[in-house]
């Protein structure tokens, strides 16, 4: 066959455009956002969190009672039109106390989770990725820290520091990242032998780039699970620490301490346990949904 000039003509532009599989170019983060928005449960969780936050801000002013106003005639009364969530042993309005508590508990839960995430992921990632001697030393440090009795550490903090939220964060921050670090390290140990990591290494990517761009996003599943689980644990540890005298001082109360106080009254005045407990559960569910949504949205493989 003879080649003619006509045959060598460039194709009509409209042809390629027609073949494009209609998707505009998007960045990774745009993807994440879109995937997240499409996840109904995650969006529901987000709405719940926003509502809880809004109530934490406005709730204490809605019922007309303050969090510390006592009325002995009205002690241990069940929910009514006057006291929407009932009253506690000193006749204080539980509705106001619950929303006051929300401020403390949400702050403690979320901030602790974030702090644990940062320290734990970085520490565990480095330990797992570099392996060998680095891993050996870093993991022994984790074991040392988790073997020293927490309560002793708390008592010592109590002596040297003023009680308050700052002290709570120091106490929690000192120990809570330890399990996270071990978890991340375990994942990284397994992932770093995967082909794509080898490929990245061959291509000359720096260890930190490999760790942050390639390995950590792939460990997000268990990390987010562990992080959302951290929230109720932190909420209750705060209650325990406050009870010991490290946290917010009475008559201020958090969800955790309201629930702890309520446990004794399980049979006599169940609403004293029910309300703080139900909000802790709700918070947990919401954060879980958001966490799952985030995990799915961040998953590089799920990128479409």
């Amino acid at each position: 066959m003879e080649l003619t000039r006509e045959l060598l003509q460039p194709l009509d532009k409209s042809g390629t455009e027609a073949e494009a599989v209609g998707k505009p170019r998007t960045t990774y983060w745009q993807d994440v956002r879109r995937n997240f928005r499409q996840n109904k449960l995650a969006m529901f969780g987000l709405v719940v969190i926003i509502v809880l936050l809004a109530m934490a801000i406005t709730g204490p002013y809605l019922s007309g009672h303050t969090y510390d106003e006592q009325n002995y005639q009205m002690a241990n009364k069940p929910p009514s039109s006057e006291y929407w969530f009932g009253t506690d042993a000193l006749g204080r309005d539980l509705f106001t106390r619950v929303w006051y508590g929300a401020r403390i508990s949400l702050a403690v839960g979320v901030l602790t989770a974030c702090m644990v995430f940062l320290i734990g992921v970085l520490y565990g990632g480095i330990s797992g990725y570099f392996g060998g001697k680095v891993d050996e030393v870093m993991m022994r440090v984790v074991e040392i820290l988790s073997s020293i009795p927490f309560l002793l550490w708390v008592i010592l903090l109590m002596v040297v520091m003023e009680p308050g939220l700052k002290t709570i964060f120091i106490a929690l921050g000192a120990v809570y990242w330890l399990n996270m670090a071990r978890l991340v390290r375990g994942q990284v140990l397994s992932l770093k032998e995967q082909e794509y990591v080898l490929a990245a290494r061959v291509l000359g990517a720096s260890p930190f780039r490999i760790l942050i761009r390639h390995i950590i996003p792939n460990t997000m599943g268990p990390i987010i699970v562990a992080m959302t689980l951290m929230i109720p644990e932190a909420i209750f540890t705060e209650a325990w620490l406050s009870f010991l005298g490290l946290g917010v001082s009475a008559p201020m109360a958090s969800w955790g301490s309201l629930a702890s106080d309520g446990v004794g009254a399980i049979s006599a005045y169940p609403w004293q346990l029910f309300f703080p407990a139900i909000f802790i559960c709700l918070t947990m569910l919401a954060f879980n949904f958001v966490g799952d949504g985030l995990r799915d949205a961040l998953d590089p493989r799920a990128r479409r």
Binding site: G131, G132, E143, G186, S190
Partner: peptide, 28 residues
């Protein structure tokens, strides 16, 4: 502490049983 360390050692050893690609002895 002794108990925790022993358990962590067992865990690390079992990694390579579950996933033979994991090597604990080799450094980066």
């Amino acid at each position: 502490a002794v108990f925790l360390m022993a358990m962590n050692l067992i865990v690390d050893l079992s990694y390579s049983l579950i996933d033979p690609r994991i090597k604990l002895t080799r450094g980066e």
